[in-house]
C-alpha cells in the first residue's frame, strides 16, 4: 500500500498533473452497465427533461471516479487513497453529439496531515462547461 511519490518530496501547494476526461452518451451507457445505475436521467433525454434537467446528465459517481484518477495516476498505486469524498454541486450535462462533455480536473496538495503515516490531503477541482461540478472534493493520500 505504498505510493510512488515520496512524502518528503511533497509540499503544500504541490500541483498534481491535471487531466481532462471526455464523456459522451456512449460513455454513460457503458458506465450505467458497469455500475448498475440505470437511472434514465443518464441516458434518456425525454425523461431528463421531464424531471426538469436541461438534458441527459452524467452519473455523479462517474464524475467522482474520473476526478480521483488525477490522484491515483500521480500516486501510482490506487491503494494510496485512504479517504476520498465529494459533494455533487452541479450536473455534467452531456449533449447528444459526437463531442459530448469534458470534465477538467486539477489537484494540489492542500495539507501535510501526518508525518508518521506520511499522509497528505489533496484538494481537487472538477469543471465542466466552465462550472465547478464537484464541491469539497478531497482525498487523503498515503505517500511513500
Amino acid at each position: 500500500m505504498t505510493a510512488g511519490i515520496a512524502y518528503a518530496d511533497v509540499e503544500v501547494g504541490t500541483e498534481l498533473p491535471a487531466a481532462s476526461f471526455p464523456v459522451t452518451r456512449a460513455t454513460l451507457v457503458r458506465y450505467a452497465g458497469a455500475s448498475g445505475d440505470f437511472n434514465p436521467i443518464h441516458w434518456n433525454e425525454r425523461f431528463a427533461r421531464e424531471v426538469g434537467l436541461p438534458d441527459v446528465i452524467a452519473h455523479g459517481m462517474f464524475t467522482m471516479a474520473e476526478a480521483v484518477r488525477v490522484v491515483t495516476d500521480w500516486a501510482g498505486d490506487p491503494a494510496a487513497v485512504v479517504e476520498y469524498g465529494v459533494r455533487f454541486t452541479k450536473p455534467v450535462v452531456v449533449p447528444d453529439d459526437d463531442t459530448g462533455a469534458l470534465i477538467e480536473v486539477t489537484g494540489k496538495v492542500a495539507a501535510r496531515l501526518d508525518d508518521e503515516a506520511r499522509t497528505v490531503r489533496v484538494d481537487l477541482t472538477a469543471r465542466s462547461a466552465g462550472q465547478k461540478v464537484l464541491g469539497m472534493a478531497r482525498a487523503v493520500v498515503r505517500l511513500a
Binding site: 500500500m1 455523479g60 459517481m61 467522482m64 490506487p78 491503494a79 487513497v81 485512504v82 479517504e83 476520498y84 469524498g85 465529494v86 459533494r87 455533487f88 469539497m136
Partner: peptide
C-alpha cells in the same frame, strides 16, 4: 431523492 455527498474511508482496497 438526489445524491448530495459521497465519501469513502478505506482500510484497504
Amino acid at each position: 431523492v438526489v445524491h448530495g455527498d459521497q465519501r469513502f474511508a478505506y482500510t484497504r482496497p
